[in-house]
Design a protein around this nucleic acid. Structure first.
Lengths: 350, 350
DNA sequence: TTGTAAGCGTTATCAC
DNA sequence: GTGATAACGCTTACAA
């Protein structure tokens, strides 16, 4: 109703001093059980709750992590994946007593400016980054300015990958696509095609590797055939359709038994061309995949979120002492799972 | 690098006292220009930034708004709309010097518990609610506990709607669907069907009204026909397909010239049945609509966000004095726009 | 074990 | 216009 009660109010009600109340809250074991209970009763009856800003000012910790809300994805279906990650992160952070503060930025420079603002104002004491890339200036800035952070996504540079200053969690896309490809091979498919992204994106290349591995392992087609069974395009649904047609042409007289795509967007496009005639597997398990009924590789975002938080709050606290052991778990790769949807998809070629 | 500079540091560097620095920041006009410039130069050179928690403690304002991240949508394609709203809200809040803090809750009771936690701890000083419904216990709690809040979505009760304590912003779904229907009628369609949600949801009923209005206005079919041109189902893609088939059967020998749907999910389902043979218009203009190439009604989420923030920071500050004038702009209805996509959609009936 | 005192960085009040 | 003093609510030495 009126003003929130303070420690003094609680102290008054319990007949102790303010510090005893504080101790009950922060170090319950050092206070005599009898007193402790009396204080706790007072806390409960007054509905006392510590003032977050006062505590943060005193402790010099914001207990808040900042995360950028990506610019809205224009075409990609997969916008929801960051949304789901955010949800998992927020939920788990909450359980750890951490808050999640949002910010936006138009570009990388803007994001760095936000880093500066939020850290200077002590608004957050750690950042979570998504979709990192090789030579990402954001991580450079954060390391240089001694800011705690964890990225969802590997730094794709060869050297960065094991940089002890860069904590990351990522999904093993290669394993996911490998599993998807194997799934089709096990169901009797031989010539499984792959629609990927143009090479250069670490994530896309990694997923393609998974397809390659499964195909080589299956040894169902010769090495020379593999080139004709894959194609690449940017992540837009319409391009996925084009890619599917191209793939069909390329594949030659023996045709195609199935297709694995690097994303649900491309899978949707592919499906619009060959839906029902050929199994298509996507990546991300977006609502679209579920709705339309095609299989897709699902990223375990809960695990990613918990990994991020563990790295953030764990031994290193997001900040690593130079010279410490190398094999510390500063990086985490979680394995996705294939969500199989049999039965005809809801859409078919026109 | 090291510790952030404080007002004292700036004061020392500029040769003034702390309060003068504070004045330069909060009331520049009352300080002599000469002094002001000197202080500002010191601020700049030291890279000083006020400590957010200290300021919040002192001013007793958190300048933070809390918003719940909805539980992940199961089937609906439209998850991205809340995402987009969140983005717009965060971006505009930032410009106003407000922070956006996220929280999650499994259900309404959990959400109220979060209200209590966040407000007691002075973590936020206002809430933004989404998807409100008639007799929503959340708004009751917030009003009772004198918490500032604005909802995105009307309280659908007849009496609540004009409750001066309940500030809301909403999109005029009726106008949006009316425009969509008119669009088809203007293009020569006569028998335009409607796939809605089961009656009872304020939002869905409102949108259906828009279709009804346009159809009556167009007077292209008799009143008795209207019942056969509409159907309703829950918001799942597969159900949309069923509804489309049902509608086709119902429509009788004269058939259907086009369909307007209450959501993109249902539109997608409808399209899977009749794609290419019949124009289908959805609602929300999700990435799916854009990707697949069907028309859809777009909610102006930027306007909703700015409306929410204006209401929150405006004259009432989210808190309304009882007995004040009734015609104050405590509620805001923004008009959506139809995004027309001609040309064949990417998918066709199987 | 408990109480006393100080201070985190800021802004508000009131002298000068 | 500017500067000293106090206070926001909390925690953490240190003293009792």
């Amino acid at each position: 109703m009126g003003a929130q009660p303070t420690v003094s109010d609680v102290a008054g009600a319990a007949g102790v001093s303010r510090q005893t109340v504080s101790n009950v809250l922060n170090a319950p074991e050092i206070v005599r059980p009898e007193t402790r209970e009396r204080v706790q009763a007072a806390i409960l009856s007054l509905g006392y709750r510590p003032h977050a800003s006062a505590r943060r000012l005193r402790t010099q910790k914001s207990s808040t992590i900042g995360i950028r809300l990506d610019p809205m994805t224009q075409d990609g279906i997969s916008g929801s994946i960051l949304d789901r990650f955010l949800h998992a992160l927020t939920e788990q952070a909450d359980r750890l007593g951490l808050r999640v503060l949002l910010f936006t930025a138009a570009d990388t420079a803007g994001e760095i400016e936000q880093f500066r603002r939020l850290s200077d104002a002590a608004d957050v004491d750690a950042f979570v980054l998504t979709s990192t890339f090789h030579g990402d200036p954001r991580t450079e800035w954060l390391i240089e300015h001694r800011q705690s952070f964890v990225t969802f996504g590997r730094p794709w540079g060869i050297h960065d990958m094991t940089d002890p200053q860069h904590l990351w969690v990522d999904v093993d896309g290669r394993a996911g696509v490998r599993e998807a490809t194997r799934h089709l091979l096990e169901r009797g498919a031989r010539r499984v095609g792959f629609i990927g992204w143009p090479s250069g994106s670490g994530t896309g290349d990694d997923r393609r590797e998974g397809w390659l591995e499964a195909m080589r392992e299956g040894a169902v087609v010769g090495e020379s055939e593999l080139g004709r069974l894959q194609t690449a395009t940017e992540d837009r649904v319409a391009f996925g359709a084009d890619a599917m047609r191209r793939l069909r042409d390329q594949a030659g007289p023996d045709g195609l038994d199935g297709v694995v795509c690097v994303s649900d967007s491309l899978a949707l496009g592919a499906l619009a061309v060959c839906g029902g005639t050929l199994p298509v597997i996507g990546y991300d398990n977006t609502p679209v995949a579920a709705s339309l009924g095609f299989s897709s590789v699902e990223q375990p975002l809960d695990e990613v979120a918990s990994g991020v938080l563990e790295l953030l709050t764990g031994a290193h606290g997001g900040r690593v002492q130079p010279g410490s052991a190398v094999d510390d778990p500063r990086h985490r790769l979680v394995v996705p799972r294939l969500v199989v949807r049999d039965g005809p998809p809801l859409i078919a070629p026109r």
